[in-house]
Design a protein around this nucleic acid. Structure first.
Length: 155
DNA sequence: GCCAACGTTGGC
DNA sequence: GCCAACGTTGGC
């Protein structure tokens, strides 16, 4: 079982959107970065747990937990000229981009903010807190996952 | 294969 | 809205 963190802008698709989806499940489309794609396609397994992270917002941070319910399959938004994620170089016979399905589990008890996460030496190896990091999907080890999750019970 | 130009992410 | 960081593209 692996642990992950995935970023999304709450104005575009936030945790409230996921919670309101049928079956509280949605496909995680629009990943257009090879490093993120590779991890999602190769390493993300059914049952893996994922932190939902709100980016590009007033208080970026971890706001909830979701679970991978379907492993990687072609991201069809890449084939749709109407989609903002359209990529003419992705061939349906040889798709370039992939997505997984995730299901809402719960909100964390509070927004565990980036500002806060940056303070802890326990997390200094995590790409999230490194300056200029733009990875939208990143793996966490169990220690990092547990550490962040414990923070929801502090003030 | 190098690298300048350009586009995007995302914190602030 | 600004801009640093970084990924991608494409000319050579």
């Amino acid at each position: 079982m692996n642990y992950w963190l995935m970023k999304s802008e709450p104005d575009v698709f936030g945790i409230e959107h996921l919670k309101k989806m049928p079956k509280q499940t949605e496909h995680w489309d629009g990943v257009r970065n090879y490093q993120a794609r590779n991890m999602m396609r190769d390493d993300m397994k059914k049952g893996d747990l994922v932190f939902f992270y709100h980016s590009n917002t007033e208080q970026p941070g971890v706001v909830g937990i979701m679970k991978v319910v379907r492993e990687a399959y072609p991201d069809y938004t890449a084939f749709d000229p109407e989609s903002k994620y359209y990529d003419p170089k992705s061939d349906p016979d040889k798709p370039r981009w992939f997505m997984v399905d995730v299901k809402y589990q719960r909100h964390t008890r509070r927004n565990i903010t980036l500002a806060e996460l940056k303070q802890y030496p326990e997390l200094e190896d995590c790409p999230l807190v490194r300056k200029g990091n733009r990875l939208s999907i990143m793996p966490l080890n169990k220690q990092q996952w547990d550490f962040i999750l414990d923070l929801e019970n502090t003030d």
